[in-house]
Design a binder for these strands. Structure first.
Length: 988
RNA sequence: GCUCGGAUGGUGGAAUUGGUAGACACGUUGGACUUAAAAUCCAAUGACCAUUGCGGUCGUGCGGGUUCAAGUCCCGCUCCGAGUACCA
């Protein structure tokens, strides 16, 4: 019987579903001691309308292999899947078509599920989550409330209940605690606190809450009608769609993730993540250690605070620069400078983020007319404004040290400000000296003279501290994350407003479900889509959502109109999977389940989530750990980024032929002809008789101008990869059928009537017509072939192009594997003991494959299987002793064929939990080795020699060999290097 | 600019502590089977030279170095990719 992958795969997919083969057990399901848990997770997909292409399952296949391997190794494996089902595309589609996003999302999920099922994943679907399910987002809202009810104690680096903070305020005000809060929070005593009105208290508390409402400058994207987070902006335009982004002030919910900066940074050390990913998070958090200095302003009570990492260069300060948006600017600008400053501020505000970034070279700024006072020398320092100083970083002000910072150097040069030098023996006339090497000594700096950087920094801080004008400070680049979106398809905030102040809906009334709206657009007066809902007011009496007409601001209040961002639901979903569906109502997951499953042992997904999802979920995990909700403070122990699978786009080339008169026909020329014609430096018409005839026929009567063929005469156009075969030949008829715009086009083919296309590797996308669909591959070769091929393609973490041609190789391998267990059409294995070589082949394979799985080197294990099957075929081995363990070995990779063979071997039930074969060294023991015999490091021939031989004996035998004598040609070797079991090298 | 990766045949990619470079697969070529095709099987396949046979020279982006021995280690470059970007 031939290998009928279609029947086999269908059969086993059905079996797995019916028997719930991959359902994970909860600890209480075991009689006696539970099996050790192992949690393998994929980044859950956003179910887009385009469906899956072959790039998506790459990571899923890798994690599935690992999950299946761990089951064979005796673990209780949790390998769930779900959907990140809130999001922009469904809403954009709703705006265009009027269809409810819930409906399109449902359709898309169905399609995803079908596609995933065909690949044979061992997912436990009984635990599926969807972020848009009210039963799920009830807990997203619950976490939001917990954040609102918390503040951060920087002293012990822990989040605590807000009630605790209130009692601290009541007893001692806010001066003695080290709580993370907004920069502009005023200081108050206990009695002042008591004297505040309830509303004032609420406003102050908002400065401390871990999620807070604040007027923030946000990244507003007019085209998308929403605010974007920093990580949703790439090169100054929106990640989705590439629309321009501008700065705008809006009242927004924010997350005080900055409070967790230090923990997010130090926690990285214990994670088994790739160095590059950790590096990306480190840079994003951007810790810098330095000092915060206070500069008095002449003739003013105000101070300028500036952060610096180089307090040792304090004597090199010759001016100050404020960000144009800095609050002090209007206060201190002198009447003479007022006009110039205002013009500058206006111009700076107009420059979009993108322009500012693109144009770093142009130096701009304006003098305010005011002077600050140097804290040590008391010299006046002119105060400038310049847009190279960012309002959002540090204090929005810098002490400019032109000798030590290139930007300050450029600015000083441009505006003719002096550049005092504080480095001993360094020439700073051309450029600043920014090195922090301790060997360079500080000069012209009073008490710092002669010190290296490392000694000078603490000394400088000490001196400034004595004056009350500076202290050590750690600064982070990480900004608080804006949490409001002006969108419909997201989690509603469990928030209503009393006198403009936010109140939380009590937990027991959650979820607050998303209301219906008649249109998914913002309202005419610019409110978010929820502003269109008729029933969107909160009745505090009945604790229900009621009609807006009932709003009286006494018992019925308006609800929040924004919704939460995409990362809300994905920040905690991993913990939801830990609990079974029917026990999820009362909590995120039961304590017992959280304790048992702990955290994700292996997480696989794309590196594009480095500074978004992966940072936010670490933040929420730490927070929920502080609260005692979670027993862990990191969500993902080990993380692997799978590389992107790229598409091989196909191009046809339109000939922009040069004519006397009109140009009206669409003519495409085979790539092979173009290339050769260019190489031969001839006219296309002279390429060959066949080509000339075609041209005459198409361009009947047209007079071509003579010129040599050049690539600039052709414009490339994408064509769908499905109409191109593995040899790059285009099926012209099919192309005309699927793309009517080619209907009347002419195609100039080579002598054999073939038309070849050009190829280029690009990102796989619909617009490039290079998408390969996994369904098609499963149809043509089967899921096991798809799985093996995706792994065979190359290292998991590396980007690589998809090349359909290679699929037949792994498919052939499966056929060969099948044949090992069959004699002609008959299933046939022998009960005879296996030969020595067969056992050696098997154990060699066990050893290598086990090692490869542990190293996530799946490409090499596929090769190993190929070698194994090749060898066993050669040996004509069909012994059960070999073939049984082989089926288990390969089952994580090609589960369908493995199940089928296992059944044919006479077993009932799934192969999935059969013990993984154990490696035994004794089968690999060799008594001889094929030694490479090298001369001066170059291998000349090999010799089979016993491994028992001593070094001397080896040398004797090698030297006696006639080939050795021939190589030496009468010379006496200077030296003979012998590494037993490895190599013989003769020098001389 | 900075940080992190990477560069090996026609192609995707192997190569454990430095120890036979190019495993495995694709592609290509030749052969067997077949009326023919497909499928299958066998053989060859880094480049160059030699060829009746034995064989030889070069070769892992470039230039140096360490070593009996370097794809692997060290120094200096080039190019490509990713992330990040006026962060004081």
């Amino acid at each position: 019987m031939a290998y009928d992958y279609k029947a086999i795969e269908q059969k086993w997919q059905k079996y797995w579903a019916e028997h719930q083969t991959f359902r994970a057990k909860q600890p209480q399901d075991f009689e006696g001691e539970p099996k050790p848990p192992f949690y393998v997770l994929d980044m859950f997909p956003y179910p887009s309308g385009a469906g899956l292409h072959v790039g998506h399952p790459l990571g899923y296949i890798a994690s599935d292999i690992y999950a299946r391997f761990k089951r064979h190794k005796g673990f209780n494996v949790l390998h769930p899947q779900g959907y990140d089902s809130f999001g922009l595309p469904a809403e954009q589609y709703a705006i265009q078509t009027g269809q409810h996003p819930a409906k399109t999302t449902e359709t898309n999920i169905k399609r995803y599920r079908e596609q995933l099922d065909k690949i044979g994943f061992s997912f436990d679907w009984s635990r599926e989550v969807r972020t848009s399910d009210p039963k799920y987002y009830k807990w997203t809202q619950w976490i939001f409330i917990q954040l609102f009810e918390s503040w951060y104690d920087a002293d012990v680096q822990k989040s605590k209940a807000i009630s605790e903070l209130i009692s601290i305020f009541e007893n001692q005000g806010n001066s003695k605690i080290d709580a993370v809060c907004d920069e502009d929070t005023p200081a108050f005593s206990a009695s002042e606190w008591s004297a505040f009105s309830e509303e004032q208290k609420e406003e102050i508390l908002l400065n401390y809450r871990l999620t807070y409402l604040a007027e923030t400058e946000v990244n507003w994207c007019p085209a998308l009608g929403t605010v974007l987070a920093n990580d949703e902006i790439v090169n100054g335009v929106s990640e989705r769609g590439g629309h321009p982004v501008t700065r705008k002030k809006m009242k927004q919910w924010s997350m005080r993730i900055s409070a967790f900066a230090e923990r997010l940074l130090s926690g990285l050390d214990n994670l088994d993540w790739s160095e590059s990913l950790k590096e990306t998070q480190k840079n994003w958090i951007g810790k810098s250690v330095g000092a915060q200095l206070k500069f008095n302003i002449k003739n003013s009570k105000s101070l300028i605070e500036a952060f610096t990492t180089r307090p040792d260069t304090i004597y090199g300060v010759s001016f100050m620069v404020l960000a144009p948006e800095h609050d002090l600017v209007t206060q201190i600008t002198t009447p003479e400078q007022k006009e110039e400053v205002e013009v500058y501020i206006k111009a700076a505000a107009k420059r979009s983020e993108r322009e500012r970034m693109a144009d770093v070279k142009t130096i701009t700024g304006a003098f305010t007319g005011a002077y600050a006072e140097h804290p040590l020398t008391k010299e006046p320092l002119p105060i400038w404004i310049g847009d190279y100083v960012l309002a959002g970083y540090g204090t929005g002000a810098v002490m400019a040290v032109p000798c030590g910072d290139q930007r300050d150097h450029d600015f000083a040069n441009h505006f003719g400000i002096s550049i005092p030098n504080v480095f001993d023996g360094i020439d700073i006339s051309q450029e600043a000296y920014a090195d922090k090497t301790n060997a360079t000594k500080i000069a012209n700096s009073d008490f710092l003279n002669g010190l290296g950087v490392l000694e000078a920094i603490p000394k400088a801080i000490e001196a400034l501290q004595k004056l009350g004008q500076g202290e050590k400070k750690v600064n982070y680049r990480l900004r608080d994350a804006v949490f409001s979106r002006q969108r419909y398809w997201g989690e509603p905030f469990p928030v209503y407003y009393v006198n403009g102040l936010p109140k939380m809906i009590d937990e027991k009334h959650l979820p607050l479900e998303l209301p219906e709206v008649e249109k998914y657009l913002p309202t005419e007066d610019g409110a978010p889509p929820l502003g269109r809902a008729n029933d969107w007011a909160w009745d505090t009496k009945s604790n229900k959502v009621v009609s807006n007409d009932k709003t009286d601001h006494k018992t019925v209040f308006p609800l929040e109109l924004n919704t939460m961002p995409g990362w809300a639901g994905s920040s905690w979903y991993l913990f939801r999977y830990m609990e079974e569906q029917n026990n999820r109502d009362q909590h995120i997951a039961s304590e017992k389940a959280l304790e048992y499953w702990n955290s994700v042992d292996l997480y696989i997904g794309g590196s594009e989530h480095a500074t978004g999802h992966l940072l936010y979920s670490r933040f929420w995990t730490k927070f929920l750990n502080d609260k005692g909700v979670l027993p862990v403070n990191e969500p993902f122990k080990k993380l692997i980024n799978q590389g992107m699978i790229l598409g091989e786009s196909a191009f046809v080339y339109r000939w922009n032929y040069n004519v006397e008169g009109e140009n009206f026909k669409t003519v495409f020329v085979s790539k092979s002809i173009i290339d050769e014609s260019i190489r031969n430096e001839e006219m296309l018409i002279n390429y060959s008789e066949s080509v000339a005839n075609q041209i005459y026929k198409i361009l009947d009567g047209v007079q071509l101008k003579s010129s040599k063929t050049q690539s600039s005469h052709f414009s490339p156009l994408h064509v769908d990869v499905s109409v191109v075969n593995a040899s790059n030949q285009l099926d012209i008829e099919s192309l005309k059928n699927i793309k009517p715009k080619f209907k009347d086009a002419h195609f100039i083919t080579n002598e054999l009537g073939k038309f070849t296309v050009g190829r280029e590797v690009e990102k796989m996308s619909k617009s490039k017509f290079n998408v390969v669909n996994p369904d098609d591959v499963c149809e043509e070769y089967g899921a096991d072939s798809l799985r093996l091929y995706e792994m065979f393609l190359g290292p998991l973490e590396q980007a690589k192009p998809w090349n359909t041609a290679g699929l037949s190789g792994v498919h052939n391998f499966l056929k060969k594997l099948w044949k090992l267990y069959h004699d002609g059409d008959q299933f046939s294995v022998s009960e005879e003991p296996a030969s020595k070589e067969a056992l050696k082949t098997l154990h060699k394979t066990i050893k290598k494959v086990t090692q490869d799985i542990e190293d996530f080197s799946f490409n090499t294990s596929v090769s190993t299987f190929m070698i194994c099957v090749n060898e066993l075929s050669q040996q004509k081995c069909n012994s059960r002793e070999i073939l049984e363990p082989l089926a288990v070995l390969i089952s994580p990779y090609a589960p369908h064929i493995a199940e089928e063979l296992w059944e044919r071997l006479g077993h009932s039930g799934s192969i999935s939990e059969v013990q993984y074969p154990l490696f035994d060294e004794k089968y690999l023991k060799e008594d001889s080795k094929t030694y490479p015999i090298s001369f001066n490091g170059k291998m000349r021939f090999t010799m089979d020699l016993s491994l028992d031989l001593s070094k001397d004996k080896l040398e004797e035998i090698v030297m006696a060999d006639e080939r050795t004598q021939k190589q030496l040609d009468g010379r006496t070797p200077k030296k003979v290097i012998i590494v037993p079991g490895k190599i013989v090298n003769i020098v001389g």
